[in-house]
Design a protein around this nucleic acid. Sequence first.
DNA 1: GTTGAACAGTTCAACTCTTGAACTAATTAT
DNA 2: ATAATTAGTTCAAGAGTTGAACTGTTCAAC
Lengths: 146, 146
Amino acid sequence: MDVGKWKSIFGRYEAASFTVNKRFGSMIKEQLQDVLTVEQQMTLSYIKRFGSCTTTELAEAFCVQKSAITAIVTRLAEKGYIHRIRDEKDRRIVYLKLTEEGSNVFQWGEEKVFEVVSPYLKMFSDEEIETFLTLYEKLASQVNEE
Amino acid sequence: MDVGKWKSIFGRYEAASFTVNKRFGSMIKEQLQDVLTVEQQMTLSYIKRFGSCTTTELAEAFCVQKSAITAIVTRLAEKGYIHRIRDEKDRRIVYLKLTEEGSNVFQWGEEKVFEVVSPYLKMFSDEEIETFLTLYEKLASQVNEE
DNA sequence: GTTGAACAGTTCAACTCTTGAACTAATTAT
DNA sequence: ATAATTAGTTCAAGAGTTGAACTGTTCAAC
């Protein structure tokens, strides 16, 4: 019931996320120049966080087909940012790890993204940012339960 | 000062937005089937909201080059969802309008997106959702000031 | 009035990302 | 041993994007 209320809330969410995503996306892309694409930076980030991971894991985390990950990883490997290492026990599995250079490039990119995003986060009061993040994280964890 | 605090806040924001964007994006894409892409739906949405608009306007709103908009609009026009109408006074300008069919398809798509997103918004209390949206909108408006 | 700058939009080649189907190779189940 | 499953890749096709070059139109300065 009260469909109108939810349509209105949905509309507000839609508008805010559209603006934030498009603007941040564009600014981040600009900062990463021709060194990395946004998807490539996120891929390095994921591998960095877990130390190493598989194509299948990345595909699930990014909500895409495995072949999409293969393409991204191949480009990153060609640039020398990623190693492919076969599991010795189960030789179907390929572990992805950052190279030294990949780790450095990721660090550089992460700093660029930080420089884009953090000025806007700093416009909030401590209480506001904590409240906002808590609710955003709640949304994320709910969306994450499939 | 206190760089660590902001790195931590940034990290939380990054993680939450990654999850929400990837999951919602994937679910919305699935719902829109082969009828519309997410970008196409957003394009119809923008035109619907303003009644009519130009390539330049869309390029600014979407933070992309005008040639990217031309490509999307061409595909939508080929499907019969958009009309291109030249301004009689300034013949450089092309107004984009939804056709009857375009309007219907947009309505259908918007309902699909609503069905994906609204269940998650409904998991929040009235107060939470209001707080969250207010802060998200504040972020959006700050990001929007170029 | 003519000329040149600016503007709106399109075209094109090149690239990234994505899907889905077909495939290889390895492991597991029956 | 055979069949099913799993991990990953390859490939063709299509969407979205950029940036440069282009058409056509308007406007400003001389």
